[in-house]
Design a protein around this nucleic acid. Sequence first.
DNA 1: AAAAGTAAAGGACATTTGTCCCACCTGTAA
DNA 2: TTACAGGTGGGACAAATGTCCTTTACTTTT
Lengths: 190, 190
Amino acid sequence: MIRTNTAFLDFILANRGRYPEDSVQEISIDKGLELIRQRSSVNAVFIIKEGMAKCSLYQDDGTDFILEFFGVGEVMGEIEMLNNEFSFAAVEALTPMTVLRVKKDRFNELLSKDQKFNHHVLKLLAEKVRYKATRFSFNQTHTLEQTLTEMFKDMPDLLEVISKKDLVSYLGITERSLNRTLKILKKRVM
Amino acid sequence: MIRTNTAFLDFILANRGRYPEDSVQEISIDKGLELIRQRSSVNAVFIIKEGMAKCSLYQDDGTDFILEFFGVGEVMGEIEMLNNEFSFAAVEALTPMTVLRVKKDRFNELLSKDQKFNHHVLKLLAEKVRYKATRFSFNQTHTLEQTLTEMFKDMPDLLEVISKKDLVSYLGITERSLNRTLKILKKRVM
DNA sequence: AAAAGTAAAGGACATTTGTCCCACCTGTAA
DNA sequence: TTACAGGTGGGACAAATGTCCTTTACTTTT
């Protein structure tokens, strides 16, 4: 459930020497900082080298829904770059992070000039579509209890890594429901 | 809610004369035919010229969840092509269709040799991510009544175009719930 | 038109999730 | 120590959705 993409990160790290000066900058991000603000224009693509972020969508009614947790290697801002639109989601650091920053012009240049870079971006987008589809499909057709059971199978230390509040937003439920179901699951284990 | 992408279709239609012989074949599809079978290998990309299809995911428990309704210009099979994996979803014609078929090798060739083609594919993938994210976010955080209200605003003739069974699978609910809510909405209008 | 068979709609009750609020814990200021 | 504030978990009830089965409506056959 925390997305990673080491293939792309490794590729960038191995090749950045060949790119024009300053194409890829490494920057440190404090926990809690908002890397991308919703409905603002985005002028760089970010790749996570260390740390974790959440990508969420604030809705009109005040609720916020977490689309994805981004881990090492995940890429942010490329959707907006390609559609040339304002960001449709927000990205916020959940831990201190180190990210690689590629400015808009450089990103587009790499896309058109470096075939391997281009192919990585295509694959990464395809993977985002695939993952979103399967995740949402599962959530829509299963109860919270089933969904949580799956998540713990995948990641037993879930609650140490992600706060209850974030988990609630990720699942689109209330804190009450989460607590209730966690209690049921705890009983089940004993 | 029925996705379309005329930009890409127009581009293909305008340029196919320049592509090698037989790169883009036009084929007719009967209603009900399964263009892409889930968990099978995909060896061509399809673009809809006429008609409509559903893209769905059959789950282990027998339920099937409709990810998207594909209308004119929508592209199918490109995710599998890029990830070089078996199809994760199935696509079935809901009406008689005409589709443009681009074989795997040709598709990859166009991707690497035709920069505009490449850019169209990038944009189309980005748009799929964006759309899925906003749709699912909305559904997860709203009741069926709210979701249906929005859908009818967008498309008053919804029920003439899409069968109740498909609508049910698209929303991940039961037929009973749909009927109940439709009745409530009908009362509301009067 | 009557009978039989099939698909769609809806009633009654069960389960899941949400809302509201209270009790309890912890830390801190008086 | 007391009193107050903020946060966390949970009880009680409400609302939304699912399950099961009956009823209604619509076709087809005779």
